[in-house]
Each structure stands twice: as C-alpha cells, then as structure tokens.
Amino acid sequence: MTNLKVLVSSNDFPDSGLQILREHFTVVQSPYSHFGEEGATQNKEELLKLIPGSSALVWVTHHPLTKELLDKAGPQLKIVATASAGYNHANVEELKARGIKLSNTPNVLSSAVAEIAVSLMLATARRFTENLDQVRRGEWEAGFVKVLGQDIRGSTVGVIGLGGIGQAVVKRLAGFEVAKFLYTGHREKPEAKALGAEFVNLDDLLTKSDFILLAVPLTSETRHMINSTTLGKMKSNAILINVGRGDLVDQEALYDALKSKKIYAAGLDVTTPEPLPKDHKLLTLPNIFVLPHIGSATVRTRNDMAVLTSNNVVNALTGKPLITPILE
C-alpha cells in the first residue's frame, strides 16, 4: 500500500494524523496553508500540481473542492476525507457522480464547539462587545442600571439541530438553571427525553425562545434559514447564536434586525465570508459578538479530528468500511 499517494491539502495538518498516513502510504503535503487568501491563491495552484495520481485527498480547509481539482486527480482517486464536521465545501454531488467516497469528522468536535456556543451565549447576553469597548476606552459606565444584560437562568433555549453539537450544548447548560429547552429538526431525537428537550416546529421555536442556537449542516434546505421572515418571528429579547455555517444566516437581514433592535443580539463563530472584512457593517454594531471560526480550535480536538480523518483514509484504501461515512 505504500505506493498509494495521499495528498494533504494544507501545511498545518497535525502530526498525529500524518503519522498514521505515513505508516501506510506515500504522503504528499502542500507547503502552503489552505485557509484564507493563501489558500485561495498560492495553495490552489500548488494543489493542482500535486494532486495528479492521488488515491486519497485529505481536505483541510473551508475552500470548495472544485471539479478542476477532481479532474486533475485522475480516476484512481478513491476518497476525500474532510477534517471538519461540515462538508458543504466538498462538492458532494460531483463526488457521488464519480463514485468517490467521502468522510467527515463529526462528534469528536462536539464538546469543543459546544463550549464556544455557551461562550457566545454568555458574551452576547452580558453585552461583552460594549463592555470590552468601555475597558479599551478607559471610560467605564458607572451606575446601578448601566449596560445591563440578560440572564440564561430562567430562559427558554431553542436548538435548531439537536445533533452531537446541539446535545453537547444542552448538557453544558444543565447547570445554568434554564427553564426550558426546545428543539426542531426533521424528526424527534430519542436522546431528547433524557436531556429534557421538547420537540416543536420551527415557528414555535422562533416565537418562544430567548436564545436560538444554529447547529445544523449547511444544505440547500438550510441556506439562509435565518432571514427577514424568520427573524421577524423572534422575540425582541432573542439572542441568535450560530456555530454551524455562515450561510445559514442572511447577514443583510441580520444586520437590519440588530440595527433596528428587532432582536436583542447575535453571537457568531461563523460568517460569510471568512474572514469577515474588518470594515464589515456587522462589526459596527454594539449588539453582536464575532469569533473567527474557532469552534473546534483546541489541541485535543484538532488532534482527534486529524486521527479520525486519517483512519477514514486507511479504511477506504484497505477495503474496510469508513468510520464516519458521508458517501460510501
């Protein structure tokens, strides 16, 4: 098997994953990062040079996997293994048409992403953007009723997508004295009963929740599921949290809702585009808190993701079932 070529798309794939691949295959790794501007320019050209003859592609990026790259790879490409839970960037229909397997890394990042979701809830409810600005300016607003925030205690938390991440968030909020957990999705989840979460339709969740968490994959169905219509159904004190993908939210509609205070606040770990330009109008608002897509960014989690990605490649190229398949 050592004659099989595996291409790793970025220079920052953890050694924990590389070691597994190198035990079995010939590993070629791009010298460039596949994130940001470098990924879109230098690395794109480098990957076109490196990809011919690859049996597997370890896709460490949020950049789209193009038809051009797949054409360059050749017919021996057997698997694309994404180092991410989301796979909207992996050109699923094209891979399916070519009979190429696809895997992702769900579950191993649920805990880390859930911690960021809870952090965003706290940051937005307690108005961190405004309060940090006070500290930086050295002008603190003194007073008993100045810059007051909202409580998680006694609130209704609505989860759109009670998968691994959504469930991990509910578990972490158990000590916050939340009054009620609601969730919605295609069907009821057997795990929900133990979590004390009630299945409702989307409209009920939007109209009743104080916090609304987006934890669903980006698909044609979920793209811009948060828009002017759905924002209009939310309570005036509602706080929107997005740890899924940026395009779940129509950011123009979100800006309008935050600017006019139709909703209370938003906390985003994902945006469109990424990185969000420093002069983007969302960043002019006091009632938004934005993080640079760091949901899974812990040492342990990224190593776990790398190991799972690599083991999926090993299984695919040695005739074993994928551990976390999207396409088999």
Rank of each mutant, 00 (worst) to 15 (best):
I160V: 06
L162I: 15
A179F: 04
M225L: 02
S228K: 10
V157C: 02
T184N: 13
S209N: 00
L173R: 05
Y183S: 06
R223E: 13
L162M: 15
L258C: 03
V216S: 04
W140C: 08
N201G: 08
R187D: 09
W140F: 11
L206F: 15
I226K: 03
E198Y: 05
R223M: 08
T230C: 00
Y255P: 04
K261Q: 13
G164F: 09
G163K: 01
Y183G: 12
K189G: 03
L182R: 10
S236T: 11
G143Q: 03
E198G: 06
M234E: 04
M234T: 11
K233A: 13
M234Y: 14
E221L: 05
Q251G: 04
N242K: 14
K193I: 13
Q150W: 10
E141T: 15
L254D: 13
S236P: 04
T129W: 00
R223P: 09
V216A: 03
G166P: 11
E188H: 10
A179W: 01
Q150D: 06
A253V: 02
S228C: 10
K208D: 09
T129R: 15
S236C: 02
Q251Y: 11
V216C: 04
A168N: 13
K259P: 12
V147N: 14
E188D: 10
V200Y: 07
T129N: 10
I212H: 11
V249Y: 06
K146F: 12
A142T: 14
D250F: 02
K208M: 06
T222D: 05
T230A: 00
T222Q: 00
L182M: 07
D133A: 15
D247A: 15
A215T: 13
S260K: 08
A192P: 08
S155F: 08
V200L: 05
G158I: 09
L258R: 08
E130D: 07
Q134T: 13
A142W: 12
D256N: 14
I165G: 04
G138K: 09
K180N: 14
F199G: 07
L213D: 04
K235F: 00
G149D: 06
E130V: 13
F176Q: 09
Q150C: 07
D133I: 12
I152N: 04
G161V: 05
Q167Y: 13
F181M: 14
F211I: 12
L202N: 01
A194F: 02
E139V: 15
V243R: 03
F181C: 14
L240Q: 09
Q251I: 03
L248V: 11
R153Y: 12
G154H: 08
E141Y: 10
L248I: 11
E177I: 05
V159T: 15
M225F: 00
T229L: 09
I160Y: 06
E198L: 00
S209Q: 07
K180A: 07
L195M: 01
G246S: 01
F144T: 15
D250E: 06
D247E: 12
G158A: 04
G138E: 14
G196V: 02
R137T: 12
I160E: 03
K180Y: 08
S260P: 05
L258M: 03
L162F: 14
T207R: 14
D133M: 08
G163L: 02
K208T: 12
G143P: 15
T156C: 07
Y255E: 01
G149P: 07
V157Y: 01
I241M: 05
I241L: 01
T129H: 11
D210N: 04
S228E: 13
A192T: 11
G246P: 04
A174D: 06
S209D: 02
G149Y: 02
I165R: 09
A238N: 05
